[in-house]
Amino acid sequence: MSTAATGAAGAGRRAGDEPVLDVRGLHVRTRHTELLSDVDLTIRRGERVGLIGESGSGKSLTALAVLGLLGEGLTATGGVHLAGHEGNLLERSEGGLARIRGDDMAMVFQEPMTALNPTMRVGAQVAEAMTVHGSASRSQARRRAVDLLDQVGLPDPEHAARAYPHQLSGGQRQRVVAAIALANDPVLLVCDEPTTALDVTVQALVLDLIVTGVQSRDAALLFITHDLAVVATVCERVLVMYGGRIVEAGPVGQVFTDPRHQYTAGLLAASDLTAAGARRERSALPTIPGTVPPAGRFPDGCVFRNRCPAATGQCATRPPWTPRGDHGAGETASGYACFYPAGGELR
């Protein structure tokens, strides 16, 4: 399956590899409402997978559920398996999860300022990531921290290691967060909107750093964003989420040029500002009618049917998953859940 979208593919990847992350039938609910419904998700070694969706789609919730960081009052059921760790992560104690988090699976958040401790020097924070998991002694960790800060492209890493977070720019802080996430060579890196708070030029550099960091470690990447162009730039495969469900999945090239789910098609059309002539002719942009409903107010059956131009009575029942092509990571890796798939006509 050549995806065309990316440059250098992960070097030592073999077909049929054990998946690094395997999520099966993940549900997340509060006492009253279901927020995530039947999410399947597999990422293999060295694979970069994007998870896109609008606010309220459940994309961040998926990441939090995988990492075992769900807030009070939220319960997750289903299966989350990480390579090298026995059993279902959802059934682990908080202590058991804490040993894995920051070690074999790490996370980069949107807001670099709140992800760092403002009272601690950044070098010490990177070093702490290693000493906590016993992967390095105190002095080793200090030295490696400076190396890592150098790797993520901080100028004068010796000096930067002694800085406090507020003395760094937003982009530099996000590099430090990335250094902490990569400190223990995780097998899975989860990034939740890591560049949304950054300027365009800084975004380009941070995206590059994340891709390079993941590639050099042959790690799996789960990259969450609302920005289609960013996903296409960073990932090989993409999952489209809406209303707490994955509605479409597949290689980036396939999903973005030939979408099947009506939501994906609408989203692509609405976001394509650079379509030729759009500006000069002052033609109205295509839109998806209405707004994303608040959690728990999505319709039964197909979650998109109240905004969908193609919906009929049939859509009141839940559309089954239709696999598309033959993807190495299984049939949930590529396909869609729609009764009236778009005919592959993106303009």
């Binding site: 365009v200 030029t201 975004q203 995206l207 750093l209 162009a229 730039t233 090239g253 976001s271 394509d272």
Partner: peptide, 20 residues
């Protein structure tokens, strides 16, 4: 530096943006 959907599908990766 702007990520662009069409350019990305034509093979412009993060490394290319960063280099630019």
């Amino acid at each position: 530096a702007i990520p662009d959907l069409h350019a990305a599908l034509d093979g412009r990766a993060a490394a290319d943006l960063a280099r630019a």
